[in-house]
Structure formats: C-alpha cells, structure tokens
Design a protein around this nucleic acid. Structure first.
Lengths: 191, 191
DNA sequence: AGACACTAAGACGGCGTCTGTCTCAGTGTC
DNA sequence: GACACTGAGACAGACGCCGTCTTAGTGTCT
C-alpha cells in the first residue's frame, strides 16, 4: 500500500491477480480495471496498443524480477563452472517452485510453452544477458559471454520443460557434471 | 476411470474442473466439451436448455452429495437437540472447508452469495428435507419437521455467510447453547 | 444384412461481450 | 486560469459464445 507504488505497478499487479484467478486466456481489460481500481481509459493510455502491450509489460517485469532475485542469490564464484552451476540450479529451482507457472502449464499448456520458447525466449535471453553478462565477463570475453548466457538459458528452459533422465539441473552435483565438459575448454580461474 | 461412470457424470465432473480453473462466469460449453471429451452436441442433448440446465444439474448433484455425506456422518442421537447440533456442526464445518466455495466467495462474491440465498436456497432446503426429514421425524411430526429443517438450514447458511459474535455453529457446545431454546418446547426423548 | 440409437464434428445465424478509440466532466497542481 | 491527469461512459467493429441443426461415422441389436 506504499503510495510510491506507481499506477503502472498497480495495474500489472492486478493483471497478475486476474491471471491467477481466471487464466491467461480469460482475462479482460475490464477485469484488470476493476481489480486495480484504475479506469479502462487510463489503462489504454498507460499501454498504448492495449491488451497485448499490457501483457508484454507484465512479462518483462516478471522476467526482470526473476533475474534480480537470481543476482541477489548468487554467491561468490571461483570459476565459470561454479557460476554456471549456481545459475542453473537457482533458475531451475525457481521455475519448478513457481506456482503460477506450474498451474499455467497444467491448464493452458500450449500458451505456457510458447511463452517459454518461440514467443518469450528472445526476451528472456535479453534480460538474462543484461543481468548476467557483468558477472560472466569476470571469466570470459563479452562476446563469448553473450553466447554462453544464451546457451545456458536455452538449456535450463529445455530441461525444465522436458526433464532429461541423464541430468537434473536442480541438483548442484548433477548440474556440475553436466556443465563441466561445456566450460572445460575456457574455464580459467581468476589467477 | 470406472466405465460405470455415466457420460453425464463425466460432463459434470468436467464442469466442476472448469469452474475451479476459470471461475463460474468464464466457463463456456466448449471448455466443458474439451475437458470431458464429450462433444458439444451431446452436452446439449444431455441438458436440454443448455448452459443454465447443466449448471443447475451440477448444483443439484453437489447438494445431494453434501447431504449424503452428512447423513453418513451423523451418529445416533438421543434428542432433537442432539441431532440438530450434529447437523449444524457438520454443515458449518463442511462449508468452511469447501475450498471451491471459499474461493468462489473471494473471487465472485456476488454470484456465490446469490447461490446460497435467493437463487439456491430453495433447492438446498428441498434436498435437505429429502435427506433429513426421515431422521428428524423420529422426534417430531412430518409437518413440524419440514419447518424445522427449513429453519436450521437458513440459520446455518446465515451464520456461515455472516458469522455472529454470539455463537459459532461449528462448535458443538456453542451450537447446543444456541439451539437449546429453539427446540426446548418440543424436545421429547423417544420414550 | 439392415434398422436403430447414439455420437463427434462442425456449419450456421443471432446475440452478447470485449476491444480500442473517443469525448467529456471532474480534480489537483502550478 | 492554464495545464495535466483521471474516471465514466458512449460508440462501432470485431470477436466469441450460444443454441440449433445437419452430416457422417460407430456399435448394437434382430
């Protein structure tokens, strides 16, 4: 109830609530307006383009918050492998514990999968780069870091959607075993 | 998955699922058809009149199951007061523990309240009479029993929707204290 | 085999709801 | 008083849902 919460934040919070209650496909602008106590007109002023833009804004906010939480949770690492394992384990665990996401996968599977692959993955990778590149570049070059973050993001999401019998990225030991060969050839401890 | 489950049961189960997922007001016949794997045409054949009739069928089934559960849970009683307390406590507890109902009251309050008052109460009282009259008439006449079941049903629902500071019908002692004066003048142990 | 009952699939018109844009009146701030 | 912003609501158009209907396909009887 802090008055510092912007109107946009209140609308996006309301949208989130509506999605939880009624599912992605059933939310209307009127629902969000009622829930947020912001008029429909103001919502359209806030998100020119309407529903799609508002939904995209929520996804961007959620993605940001996801990686903010990750950055706050990362401990000091002594190698790229160590850092990668921390990232993969945190991300996998968070995804598995995200009740909204799990519900979405159960009730609106097609939409949820698109959001984690074709539709949403580019944005996820962009945000991941913004948050993780400064950390990753402690071990590798910028250009390599970009490709490495891209790779890890894809692998984590893929293993979340379709768990492998060979590896559990939610388990540190298993994740380490999995990533070791991938980073071995450039894993240089920071002297 | 028992093959004995009728198509109607499967449709009503699907409807129940859809309501849980999407809320009363957002369920479409197509949702139910997909969820139940019964075609839309068959649903209309099954419930002539469409959506309203199907919803009413589910409410009837739910009400029946509620009172079947109650009848199975009732222990032998030695007086009308004792029986009344058992009924009130069971009903109140069940209502409070009904997750679907609680969710409905949180997200679609207006509809949920109508369902427990103006719209649904006549049906509830009818079913309550059908299940409880045979038991109640151990202590009182048929005509009095009808009016008594009606009275108890109204009181339980009223106290569920608007809890009183004077009495908690979920608590046996409190319920006994509350009902004692109401049944005192006709409470005749079955000699 | 043929008659019968039943179902899934989907086309159809009608209607209600949602969308996105707009106007207008009210409020608070310089 | 000028300005920026908001809520309320009208509006046309699009869309989705409803309820009915037809058609083709399946399984069960005699």
């Amino acid at each position: 109830m802090a008055p510092t919460r912007t109107a946009e934040d209140r609308v996006l919070d309301a949208l989130d609530q509506c999605i939880v209650r009624w599912g992605l496909g059933k939310v209307t602008i009127d629902d969000v307006a009622n829930e947020s106590h912001v008029s429909r007109a103001s919502i359209y002023r806030m998100f020119p383009g309407g529903k799609d833009v508002m939904f995209e804004a929520l996804r961007v906010r959620n993605t940001r918050e996801f990686f903010e939480g990750m950055r706050a949770a990362l401990l000091d690492s002594d190698s790229l492998l160590d850092l990668t394992v921390q990232i993969a384990v945190y991300a996998t665990t968070e995804l598995r514990n995200d009740d909204n996401l799990v519900t979405l996968l159960a009730t609106e599977e097609a939409t949820a999968i698109r959001e984690l692959t074709v539709d949403g993955l580019p944005r996820i990778i962009n945000v991941a780069s913004a948050y993780l590149l400064p950390i990753v570049t402690a071990y590798v070059s910028h250009d390599f870091g970009v490709r490495f973050v891209d790779l890890v993001a894809r692998l984590v999401i893929s293993h979340f959607l379709a768990p492998s019998s060979l590896v559990d990225l939610g388990d540190p030991a298993s994740a380490r075993e999995f990533f070791a060969p991938l980073v071995a050839f450039i894993d240089l401890p920071v002297s």
